[in-house]
Nucleic acid binder design. Sequence first.
DNA 1: AGTTAGCACTCGAAATAAAATAGTGCTAAG
DNA 2: CTTAGCACTATTTTATTTCGAGTGCTAACT
Lengths: 348, 348
Amino acid sequence: MELSRRDTILKLIVEYFIKNAQPVGSQTLIQEYGLEYSSATIRNEMQSLEELGYLEKTHTSSGRVPSSEGYKYYIEHLRHKDLDEEIKYSLQTILQEKNKSIEDVLKESCEILAHMTQLASVVLGPESDSESLVSIQIIPLSENSATAVFVTDKGYVENRTFVLGDSVNMQDVQKCIELLNNRLKGTAISKLPEKMESIKPLLSDYVKQHDIIYQAILQTFLKLASDRINTYGRSSLFEQPEYSKDADKLKKMLALLDNPECLRSIIADGSSGDVEIKIGNITDELTDASVIRAKLSVPGHDLGTIALVGPKRMDYDKVVSALEYIAEQLDKYFKEEKGDDSEDVRKE
Amino acid sequence: MELSRRDTILKLIVEYFIKNAQPVGSQTLIQEYGLEYSSATIRNEMQSLEELGYLEKTHTSSGRVPSSEGYKYYIEHLRHKDLDEEIKYSLQTILQEKNKSIEDVLKESCEILAHMTQLASVVLGPESDSESLVSIQIIPLSENSATAVFVTDKGYVENRTFVLGDSVNMQDVQKCIELLNNRLKGTAISKLPEKMESIKPLLSDYVKQHDIIYQAILQTFLKLASDRINTYGRSSLFEQPEYSKDADKLKKMLALLDNPECLRSIIADGSSGDVEIKIGNITDELTDASVIRAKLSVPGHDLGTIALVGPKRMDYDKVVSALEYIAEQLDKYFKEEKGDDSEDVRKE
DNA sequence: AGTTAGCACTCGAAATAAAATAGTGCTAAG
DNA sequence: CTTAGCACTATTTTATTTCGAGTGCTAACT
């Protein structure tokens, strides 16, 4: 489909700006892309586009820069939608590996993405009520220590070491773990801390140093139930002129990436399924950053969320295409692999 | 002990510069610390100190700045050596918690340190030949997946998920793990990959899809044997004027922190025991950074290494005192806790 | 009616010049 | 040995100029 002159100009401005991080003037557009219109015509179109809210000026006599609305329009109507071959190939390799936990697949995909897009990426574990405890194992390490391993149905593992001595002994820990295994298998990890509360009396009848052990296990459960969030490619952000030229902005951005709660609140909300995009005004502090987010799931199963974070000026086409590709491939993979078992999966 | 006039002046210059990141002039010293000597006298001393190699000038008519030698002299002869109460208290809380793996204790200590000193901190796991495999457990997650958990004697846990299907079945994985458990218990994690090689033939007689499983487990072993390295408080570095005013320097620093191999090579070498300090010329790129490192161990047992990384101008007194305190407390803790079992420990 | 050449005008960035500041080193006197 | 006094130096700050990329508008052109 042929684009209108106006759309062509908007598209080129967005793409030039994404690439060069410089406001775009009418002259530039002609030189760079050999547009057939005169600079005055282009200026007129630019003026209209500005009135429509798609472009902005940094000062009275500067070139134009896309507004948040401009990016949004670009993403919806103008982007190419074809995924960079290099990214596709890299992701393919990772997504097709069997015997890897989803955790690891998402992690590695995000590393790739961060590297290829020069943005920071974030992986947020699945919601804690769609993940349940499968088993607790106790493994003696030496005469005086043992580690307890907690495994969830998503293949996530958490562990806690007990140093035995006057205050704690092996039998007690073992009894305790046995009891918990019986009582807690299949419990959603978000429910573990409260269920633990109800088991407390039982424990105290049964085990000598119940309080120390109880506290330790409760802590582990809290950790298990809290969001697992990891970031990658922080240092990629240096390559972005927005940040390499403005230390303060970079600082705020990295502060966000270092703050799990805040990051979570930005990335977690929103519905499952499609790729979602927030342009500008990510937080009160970060008014010119963007977040692109994909919540990955197979029907009824939350697999976690991945997101890319960076300056408002980012290659939306590339990022959106890549995230869509990941979502699609994971979907395909689960349909294939599970096959007829899928019934069982959906029941949970 | 009274310090000589020269030492007093050097001490004050180092401390002023550490605090304010500004070259120190004779006038400043008088105003700030009420020194009894005239500015000319101080200038003369400064000149001598410069000739001795302890001070430097940034340009002909600037104030003085400590040289690497100057810092070294300060650390050896002039620092206060008393640990900040706040740091001490925070560390105490962490170091006294029982039932926590060393891994976690070091991690949390480093987080505290990074925060309190405004530096980045690094934890490097113990050397891989002083850590051995204790057990492998296989835990079914659902009809078509299972996770294998690998535990070391230091309480470190690694895991790998197997998706069952056409290519892999439960019996095979189970048989495999059983075999490995029998053969590999007690093996140093650095030796696992090569020992695995020798087991390969056995496996192929025994298990159908040995190759896929073999590869997966080998990968896990490699991961287990590779250095575990984590960094904390990267963003603290922004508070340092060295980095907030020089994006390029910051970039290089963060690149180092993002590069596990390079970081390892800087932090890992050197002997066990004392706190070691490298001032300036950390890498070819980072000529004005410093690293302070403490390899923590109980006799015969490497517990890992922690390090603080930052600009050459850092509060050496605070950092060294804190690291010494951690080393000392861990030592005490292990002596207490292990008690008469210490014989057994030393044998390994 | 839509397009374009021409031109005055705007604002920021880069270059230049001037002033202010914080320091040194040296000399000569106390 | 210490220090007051002073000439000298380099950086930082501030002010001034110049330059250029870009706009908006008007009037002519197709």
